[in-house]
Amino acid sequence: MKHLLFLTAFTTLALALNAQEIHFPPKNGPWAKMDAEKAKMDPDALLKAVQFAKENEYSGSRDLRIAILKGFEREPYHEILGPTKKRGGPAGMILKNGYLVASWGATDRVDMAFSVTKSFLSTVAGLAVDHKLIANTADRVANYVWDGTFGGEHNGKITWTQLLQQTSAWSGTLWGVKDWADRPPREGGVDDWKFEAPKAPGTVMEYNDVRVNVLAYALTHVWRKPLPMVLKEQIMDPIGASTTWRWHGYGDAWTEIDGLRMKSVTGGGHSGGGIFMTAQDMARFGLLFLNNGGWEDKQPISEAWIKEALAPSKANPNYGYMWWLNEQGNRYWENLPEHLFYAAGFGGNFIVVDQERGLVVVTRWLEPNKMGDFMRLLYAAMR
């Protein structure tokens, strides 16, 4: 029943969006602007929200190698395995129906996006469904990837849905990293984590980059081409993104398909790698989801996929297919609409989408525990 109500609400939002004029920025810009009054926002209150974002910079080092090693120091054997880049200062954009209402910082600077990458990876999975390379997300991955990565009684049960919702409990080692060593529980030690029996697939949501990277590996074999090429051709070029973004994997993350050596990318950057991108390109991606996968007269990703991707999982009501959902749960932003959904990454990187109000919000390097406060200030500015 809750899933049916979600789909009904989603359809209502889609109809409301179709009644609004959505502006799509041209390739290479410039972004068309809308003043706060026309966007039905109080200018002074909006300025207060922007100033808050500028004054609450992520407290970690701007040298992201240092920030990464410090941020994940509890993980046994943790090391930098992929590219990193020193970051810039706070930056962000606020869009109303595709028009730029406010921006701050260097929105054209390429920076690491960390786990925002996961929402791009999820979209590549959606493209595989749209192109009928994956018949159904309920299928077992072992039916598509038979090289042993999904072999055995446990891993053989894992479905695409479970990988996308981070409930797969995939067990093993990928690119030299063991699944149990990635974000281990607060209690216990290495021996406890190492010898704990894996949970049944689909029962518990565990945020785990090894298992996300297994998804990227599996999708690479389904597409039979590097995922950055898929994303570029199917999504980023159609939405007019810049040529500056990159998607990296670990140094030794190579696989061979059809006699060609291909890099298998990561779904985050907590050991380096992942997507490196500007705030402006992130905003374009958010605008695509604001408009239910449509861009001008094109439909790069199907509306049916977006509905599926934004449905809450049984194991965690705050998580869909690698998008966070502002439903009642551990990740709930109090006093903010429950229909919000967002991509989130280490260091305060966010893409927030509110389809009902026509809003896309991008933040870079905002102290993560201040994000809810920033969003409440922004919504307080709305009339």
Rank of each mutant, 00 (worst) to 15 (best):
M1I: 13
L7Y: 13
A9T: 04
L15S: 11
A16M: 14
E21T: 15
H23A: 13
F24W: 09
F24A: 03
F24K: 05
A36K: 05
L46P: 02
K48Y: 10
A49M: 12
G60P: 12
G60I: 10
L64I: 14
L69Y: 09
G71P: 12
R74G: 06
E75A: 03
P76Q: 05
Y77V: 02
Y77W: 06
H78L: 05
P83D: 04
T84E: 01
K85Y: 01
K86Y: 03
P90D: 01
I94N: 06
Y99I: 09
D108R: 11
A113T: 15
A113C: 14
S115H: 08
S115D: 09
V116T: 14
K118N: 10
A125V: 12
H131I: 02
A135S: 09
T137M: 08
D139E: 14
Y144D: 05
W146E: 11
G148R: 01
T149A: 06
F150N: 02
G152I: 10
E153W: 05
N155Y: 08
T159F: 07
W160G: 09
T161H: 10
Q166S: 10
T167K: 10
S168M: 10
W170V: 07
W180N: 00
A181C: 01
A181D: 02
P184D: 04
G188P: 13
D191H: 09
W193D: 00
K194P: 00
E196D: 05
P198L: 06
P201G: 05
Y207C: 03
V212D: 04
N213Q: 08
V214R: 13
T220K: 04
V222W: 10
K225N: 11
P226L: 07
L227W: 12
P228N: 09
M229V: 15
V230P: 09
V230C: 05
K232P: 00
K232L: 08
I239M: 06
G240H: 10
G240I: 12
S242D: 06
W245S: 00
W245P: 00
W245I: 01
D252P: 03
A253W: 02
W254N: 11
W254Y: 13
D258G: 04
M262Q: 14
M262E: 09
G269N: 02
G272K: 09
G273E: 03
M277F: 04
Q280D: 15
A283D: 05
F285C: 01
A304D: 15
K307P: 00
A311Q: 12
S313C: 04
A315W: 01
M322W: 05
W323H: 03
W324T: 01
L325P: 01
Q328V: 14
Q328R: 12
N330F: 02
W333C: 04
W333Y: 12
E334N: 11
E338H: 05
L340K: 02
F341T: 03
A344S: 10
N349K: 15
D354A: 07
R357W: 06
R357V: 02
R357N: 14
L359W: 15
V361Y: 06
V361G: 05
T363M: 10
R364T: 07
W365S: 08
E367F: 05
P368T: 15
M371H: 15
R376K: 13
L378T: 11
A380N: 14
A380P: 00
M382K: 13
